[in-house]
């Protein structure tokens, strides 16, 4: 009985150590693998067969069937330019230049809002995202998207955010070309800033 108890304690210790390694590996993995571009972070080739076991586990958690280079690149933002987490009780403006008119020319792109569980936010308008074809540009060719739980009269592009809780924005860029991939840290991407609701 004492021996069995001893082995149970060993097993629990091993599980505890494994959990600790897993917990510690997340920030280390993000620091090593993620490419940072202002508020956005990206893993350059998520679906690549040569990816590490950590990237495979990351993809399984957040997307399961990800594309690899050169087909697509995914950027994710969960904080604004003040480095505060994106919070559904607040209001934000996402603004940027037309990604297709930059020095690089992707085939198309989209911006999508997800709740803290990684699902689309319930919206009676069913406007969960904007893409390069349905977004409304302003006269200078740039765009603004209002991120809040209710629309505003000033900005036509609006994506509903969760009323409570955190959220994230994913920017997908399809067939961006080699130059885009080699400049992931510097390519001109939209910014997200808090505004008064």
């Amino acid at each position: 009985m004492i021996i069995i108890r001893k082995y149970i304690i060993y097993a629990l210790l091993i599980i505890g150590i494994a959990v600790a390694f897993t917990y510690l590996s997340v920030p280390i993995y993000k620091n090593i693998v993620f490419v940072k571009n202002d508020i956005w972070s990206s893993v350059p080739s998520l679906g690549d067969p040569k990816r590490s076991i950590y990237t495979r586990a990351y993809v399984a958690t957040y997307g399961l069937f990800a594309l690899s280079k050169p087909e697509s690149v995914y950027f994710s933002a969960d904080h604004d330019i003040s480095e505060d987490s994106l919070d559904g009780s607040l209001c934000y403006i996402l603004s940027g230049n037309d990604i297709q008119s930059a020095s690089v020319s992707p085939r198309w792109w989209s911006l999508t809002v997800y709740d803290d569980d990684g699902y689309l936010v319930e919206s009676s308008e069913k406007q969960y995202s904007y893409n390069s074809e349905n977004i409304i540009y302003n006269s200078t060719g740039n765009f603004e998207v209002y991120l809040a739980d209710r629309p505003t009269g000033n900005i036509q592009n609006w994506i509903k955010t969760p009323t409570d809780g955190l959220f994230s924005v994913v920017l997908r860029v399809y067939q961006p070309g080699e130059e885009f991939f080699s400049n992931l840290k510097r390519v001109d991407l939209p910014i997200i800033e808090k505004v008064d609701c």
Partner: peptide, 13 residues
């Protein structure tokens, strides 16, 4: 849509 489950972070485009 917001009812879509099975895959996390699905694209609505």
């Amino acid at each position: 849509t917001s009812d879509t489950r099975g895959l996390k972070r699905p694209s609505s485009d």
